[in-house]
Each structure stands twice: as C-alpha cells, then as structure tokens.
Design a protein around this nucleic acid. Sequence first.
DNA 1: GAAAATTTGTTTCATTTACAACTATTTAAG
DNA 2: CTTAAATAGTTGTAAATGAAACAAATTTTC
Lengths: 149, 149
Amino acid sequence: MKQIFRPAEKLNRLPVFLMEQVVKQYRQEAQKALKAAQAGISVDQWIVLKQVSENNGCSQVEIAQSTVKDAPTTTRTIDQLVNKELIEKQLDPNDRRKYMVFVTDKGLQLIERLLPVVQSYRKLPVKGFLKEEQDTLLQLLNRMLNNLK
Amino acid sequence: MKQIFRPAEKLNRLPVFLMEQVVKQYRQEAQKALKAAQAGISVDQWIVLKQVSENNGCSQVEIAQSTVKDAPTTTRTIDQLVNKELIEKQLDPNDRRKYMVFVTDKGLQLIERLLPVVQSYRKLPVKGFLKEEQDTLLQLLNRMLNNLK
DNA sequence: GAAAATTTGTTTCATTTACAACTATTTAAG
DNA sequence: CTTAAATAGTTGTAAATGAAACAAATTTTC
C-alpha cells in the first residue's frame, strides 16, 4: 500500500517548529561544505576560530558571549582548536584566572582558505531574498528573541 | 576590571544564528513550563504524544514524517511514551513490519491537562506580533526551508 | 514462484549538549 | 587583614542526536 503523506498542518504553523528544521538543514549543508573543502573543523569550531581571529587575545568568556555558547562548550571547542594548532592559549599575566586566546598562522591560513566556502553556504538559506526581506526577517527574529529573554 | 560586552555584529546579521538562539531559548522555556506543570514528559515527547492522539493507530513512519524527526529518534521517543503508559504499540495484522500506535486513556488525560500549558508557552515567542507579521514570518521561513531542500 | 529491492523498525556508536559540581584566582566587605 | 562573594575556567555525567549497520517483513521484477 502506498504511503499516505499527512502534513502536520498545525505544527507547520509554529514558527519555532519551522526554525528547528531550517537550522538542522542548514547545519547539515554547512558541515557538508566544510567537509568537501577538507576543512578539518566543524561549524562550531569555525565560528570560534573566526571570533578569535577578530578579537585576538580575548578571553574565553568573551568568546562564549560573542558566540552565545555556554562556558563548558566554549572550553571544549577551544581545546579542539588548540589541538589542531589553529589557536593558542596564554595565561593573562594581569589576571591568572584568564587565558588570552590567539589565532596561529596556521589558523589564519585556514580562515583565508575557508572564507569563500563559508560565505557561500551562508547565502544558501536566503537565496532569492530581497534586502528588505532579509531585514524584515532579522527584525522579526530579534523581536522573538527579546520576547524570550 | 569590568567585563566589556562585545556584541558579535556580524553573527547577529545571520538569520540562522539568531534562529538557533530562539530555538534554544524557546525549548528551555517550554521545558520549564512542562516541568512546572509536573508533566513528566519532554517537549519532544509532547509533540509525539499529540501527533499520536490526532492520528490514532498510525505507524511510526507516519509519526516520524509528521514530526520531522528521523527514525531512531522516533523509535526512542515512542519507547519512552510507552514506558510511561501514555501510548501503546500493537502489531499491524496486515503488515507485520508495522506497529500501530495508539494513545491510552492516561495519555488522553495528560494531553487534556497539558494543553493549556502548551498553548501558553507557544504564544510566548510571537507575543505582540500582528497576524500579518506572523504570516510574513511563516512565509519567509518556508522559503528558507525550500532553499535548503 | 524465486531473487532483488524496498519498507519498517531497532540497535550501536561516536558526537554534542546542558547542567551541576568543582578548582583557582581575584575582588569586595566588614 | 581576613573572610565572603564573584569570576574564569574545567571536569563529570547523563541525555539527546545522527549516521550507519542491521533484522524482519513485504513488494516488485523477471
């Protein structure tokens, strides 16, 4: 017997339900693109690597804030990047609780190589969107975020 | 020294990045609300339970499709609901690969009790949204989804 | 009607994640 | 100055997730 497809009409009217699917699909595409480029890092690792490169010498707390991840996740992601020699940690002499995190040459080279790949897959979900549609989307998402915090 | 907050301006212009935060915050709020109501189930379990009740006797594949989860996840969620005696599985006599999944009385009672709780937290993210803004949001999300599939 | 392909559901494994507890250091209070 | 509180970062653990491999049953193809 042929499979009857029953769309979940109610669920599809829930923005967050759709958003979960978009996020999941997007992450799959992004991960696939990074793998195809033999990046050797995950999407989350890319985000942290890029943040470090843009705020060279910043602390882990600052990275956690800017990437909106919690402390343990940030610790582990940074560890992974250190193991791959893409970034380095150095104790802050002025505050020995802190580490200052720096991008390495190898990290910079990887960023340069991957930048076009990342820019490419980031365009994917909003393909065909007018500039004002993108703005509307961002505005609505920010309002949702404010409602939840 | 006071912590300087540096917003990641670039990341905050990425719709998917904002959406991840919305989804995460929303799930936390939803889980908190269910816990406060002593629901005894997770958000995902709720979704499956509700789907089963609306399609009584349906197969696991149908549940997986309507909830947009993969097969292993669906198997596990159904197991959990069976353990809690909120649903029941029964072999389909016409096709012994399939299970027919039914909601129990206990399941129905729980649904009735939780429905107002769920309806309440679902309104949260779109608080203050005009009807047309919600429609715009859904339309944009669906377009993103189509771009990704 | 037998072999191949498909469908349904489960299990295993590696990764990711959130939450809580913990150490070490610095800052604030009395 | 000494204790209490806050901050930075790590570790452990339990749960969720996805991919792949798998078994069982059914359908399709020749």
